[in-house]
Amino acid sequence: MNIPYTVEERPDSGLANGKLGIWLFLASEVMLFGALFSTYIILRTGATEWPHGELSVPLGALNTVLLISSSVTMVMAWAMLKLHNWGRHRLYLLATFALAGIFLVNKYFEYSDHLARGEGPSHSTFLAIYFTLTGLHGLHIVGGMVVMAYLLGPGAKLWKQNPDQFTNRIEYTGLYWHFVDLVWIFLFPVLYLL
């Protein structure tokens, strides 16, 4: 038994199953981060004082550049599959994975710097929401890296058997990855600059 429209698009909806699925998942993610951003707004508007300059803007800016670049390489990884250029695809996907890794290393330095000064999540409401938001975002980065590792490793075999399905998987991973990138583009000004 096969499920219809796993690869090809259904004519009346114009979508394959996976694409609709990933968009629905992202809709729920918007609600998840939306609730946390709302929490930030409510806590901040209710606070008598709010710390400024606690976070390292250069490190944050560097991470922003890293993630935006990784979104570009992710698109290229997909475009190369459309051009049937397997070698370039591998290179771009690996670059995306590496950029995500460097992002996490940076994040590790930021976290350990705070913790070394005894400024954990319980130190202030600002640090509490900082650690919660960036921690959850970091978990999303890790999740994306796991998927990319699978598509670089055992999942890559699918290209030989069903190139269209593999291309779709890269596209859906890309949609998720752009969302994770977008969340950071909101997080950076909200936590580091404002």
Binding site: L24, A27, S28, E29, M31, L32, F33, G34, A35, L36, T39, L43, G120, P121, S122, T125, A128, I129, F131, T132, L136
Partner: peptide, 25 residues
């Protein structure tokens, strides 16, 4: 379920932080 549950998930995470990490959301 898709759109209403994530805010409770967020709230659950925040309360878990209050319980476990000593925050005060």
């Amino acid at each position: 379920l898709l759109l209403a549950f994530p805010p409770l998930e967020a709230a659950g995470i925040l309360q878990l932080m209050d319980k476990v990490a000593g925050t005060s959301f």
